[in-house]
Write a protein that binds this DNA or RNA. Structure first.
Length: 654
DNA sequence: GTTAGGG
DNA sequence: CCCTAAC
């Protein structure tokens, strides 16, 4: 459904009759002779064939041409020339566009036509300017066409296929032509002037968007197929898109249209996916009605002035891009083939990340998590009992509370009111590991579990275990303040009961703290999905850091799970990931301070966060260096061992 | 389930 | 800290 507009290039003159109808008259026309290159208006069928454009189509194109070529001279020929659009290159090098009377409807075809024209024109310009190698894009097009069925002559494409009306064009885009003059006025800017031939190509080309937006009347994107939308998108944004979402495409296009031209922005309103120009403005005085196809001839003068270069520039698209796109489009109708290079390019680095499947995964994950564990009915029946491992978070206080899905999914159960946006309630698996599983089913068991957990803790926790408490210090309180925000959630989560949450208890540091603190630190953060996620923040205490360092020295960096087991058993809230992250930060810090270790301790603390003792940082660096020196394999093994010795010293310090 | 990285 | 991907 692309429409190709033929442009006849004349050195001198204006183009008079271009009969561009399907007849090949254009080719045969005298002008043609004078001019090496003659373009005909044709439409590219879906299958790649070229079909002579209908009069209507030509007319439609004519509109675009007018708009597009700001510098072009538009002359309306009330006469027979109506159907013909020609762009002439005047001797001066300027392009002139002659257009018959304004046509009524423009559609996607127009857009395409514009591109085609632009392309041609550009090529022309280039050729002319640089006698050098002409751009071949059009050639490509032609050749392709030829393959199908259109003979190519001197760059001309002559269609031999019988004229056919392409319904798609008409139907696809509903373009109402309101008063052109009005539209022009809107878009016109003071500076209009003539664009130099040299830049004309780009100028014209850049006009695309504006034109589109300028085009008065309304464009019904709704009627466009996805493919068409893609086209439009491509044209509009200068890039391809693989998005299949029609709505999205429409929106984007609509937005772009409205934004592309400053003027136009004010002129359009978007309704129901349609861009509707408010014709109230200038045009109102004139012809206004969108439904009207302007019967009246366009005034060329206005047209000429229409565009200003600035506008063009603003909206400009790369010529090359356009050309290439056009070519691409011509050659390959298959959009599926379009690449998503943009994204792929971004992936690099060590690990190549696959495109995120976030939505899917998350959803599924949530589903599985939540649904599996708890049986809707069972919950209720269970009453207090906590059905799922996850359930520990919130006990049965309400069945409703059970809802944990991301979005606002209602729980099958009660559904209820409670929509807990975040999945994260359960999020960190800490507890699970320890006792959660044990406890799950017996609320009563909690006490036992608690004990158990304590035991474990003691067990696991190393000598250092107590330190944390000492360290705990003032800092924490501050953090707690944050909690308020999270409170509500907290309630949901832990509403329950006297039962102690197992995992909380597990925490060696302070049974009490954990329970509250952990929650307190939770802050909900809105996510893109619309859900909320809880952000947990617990400042690292010096003790923890020390332990971490120690652990690294012992086990080696990278063996986080092991470190966690050995050194952080008591800190249920520190996951191996946390350790890893912290280590990363420590490394950063340690190296950052490297130059002047001495001052570092003090100075670095800008924020009032407790400084990390220089010693520790040094140690971190040490370890880091050690690791770095040692080949991965070895290091993994136990570089730590070596480090261990060093560490010992440090630990003593601790 | 862990680990490495990016955000 | 969170979230993912890669193991």
């Amino acid at each position: 459904m692309e429409t190709v507009v033929g442009i006849e290039d004349n050195d001198d003159g204006k183009f008079e009759d271009s009969g561009l109808d399907r007849s090949s008259s254009a080719l045969s026309s005298p002008k043609q002779i004078s001019n090496p290159i003659v373009y005909k208006l044709v439409r590219v069928e879906g299958d790649g064939r070229l079909v002579p454009a209908t009069d209507d189509e030509v007319m439609e194109v004519g509109d675009f041409l007018e708009y597009e070529n700001s510098e072009m001279h538009v002359v309306a020929d009330t006469g027979q020339s109506l159907e013909c659009i020609s762009i002439e290159r005047s001797s001066s090098g300027k392009l002139r566009l002659e257009c018959s009377e304004g046509s009524a409807e423009a559609d996607l075809g127009k857009l395409n036509a514009k591109l085609q024209i632009l392309q041609k024109v550009k090529e022309e310009e280039k050729q002319r300017i640089s006698c050098g190698s002409p751009v071949h894009s059009h050639v490509n097009v032609d050749s392709q066409c030829s393959a199908d069925k259109c003979p190519v002559m001197d760059g001309k494409v002559q269609s031999e296929t019988p004229y056919q009306d392409n319904p798609s064009i008409a139907s696809s885009l509903n373009y109402t032509h309101s008063n052109q003059s009005g539209s022009m006025d809107q878009c016109s800017r003071p500076s209009e002037g003539v664009i130099e031939s040299g830049s004309s190509a780009s100028a014209i080309h850049s006009n695309l968007k504006p034109d589109l937006s300028m085009s008065d009347g309304e464009i019904c994107l709704d009627k466009l197929s996805i493919r068409e939308l893609h086209e439009l998108f491509k044209v509009t944004f200068g890039r391809e898109t693989t998005v299949k979402d029609k709505q999205w495409l429409k929106r984007r296009i609509a937005m772009s249209l409205t934004n592309s031209c400053d003027v136009s922005a004010t002129n359009f309103i978007i309704k129901d996916n349609q861009i509707v120009r408010k014709f109230v403005e200038e045009s109102s005085g004139n012809m206004n009605i969108s439904s009207l196809i302007s019967s009246e001839n366009m005034t060329e003068e206005e047209d000429i002035n229409l565009k200003d270069s600035s506008a063009v520039n603003a909206c400009g698209i790369d010529d090359n891009q356009v050309i290439s796109e056009i070519r691409l489009r011509n050659q390959n109708t298959e959009y599926g083939l379009e690449d998503e290079n943009n994204e792929t390019e971004q992936r690099a680095a060590k690990r190549i990340r696959r495109p995120t499947k976030r939505y899917i995964e998350e959803l599924s994950e949530n589903e599985s998590r939540e649904q599996n564990p708890r049986l809707p009915i069972s919950n209720k029946s269970m009453g207090l009992g906590q059905v799922s491992s996850t359930s520990y978070v919130r006990p049965g206080r309400n069945t409703f509370s059970e809802v944990r899905t991301y979005g606002m999914r209602f729980d099958s159960l009660g559904g209820s009111d409670v929509q807990i946006p975040c999945v994260s309630l359960i999020r960190r698996s800490r507890p699970r590991k320890d006792m959660a599983s044990l406890m799950k089913f017996h609320p009563t068991a909690t006490s036992e579990t608690a004990k158990l957990s304590n035991k474990l803790i003691e067990h696991s926790s190393d000598a250092v275990g107590e330190i944390p408490d000492k360290v705990f210090k003032p800092r924490m309180p501050a953090k707690f303040h944050q909690s308020p925000s999270s409170e509500p959630e907290k309630e949901k989560q832990c509403p329950v009961v006297g039962t102690i949450e197992p995992w909380q208890e597990l925490r060696p540091k302070r049974a009490d703290l954990p329970g509250h603190t952990s929650d307190d630190n939770i802050v909900t953060v809105p996510t893109a999905k619309g859900g909320m996620r809880r952000k947990h923040h617990r400042a690292w205490t010096l003790v923890e850091v020390i332990k971490l360092v120690e652990g690294v020295s012992r086990c080696g960096a990278g063996r986080w799970s092991e470190i966690k087991r050995l050194s952080f058993a008591s800190y249920s809230y520190r996951t191996s990931v946390d350790l890893k992250d912290k280590w990363r930060n420590l490394l950063k810090a340690s190296f950052a301070m490297t130059p002047a270790p001495a001052d570092e301790g003090i100075n670095s603390r800008k924020h009032g966060t407790a400084p990390i003792p220089e010693k520790i940082l040094l140690r971190v660096r040490e370890l880091a260096e050690m690791n770095s020196q040692v080949p991965p394999n070895i290091s993994s093994n136990k570089v730590a061992a070596g480090a261990g010795s060093v560490h010992e010293g440090r630990s003593g310090y601790l």
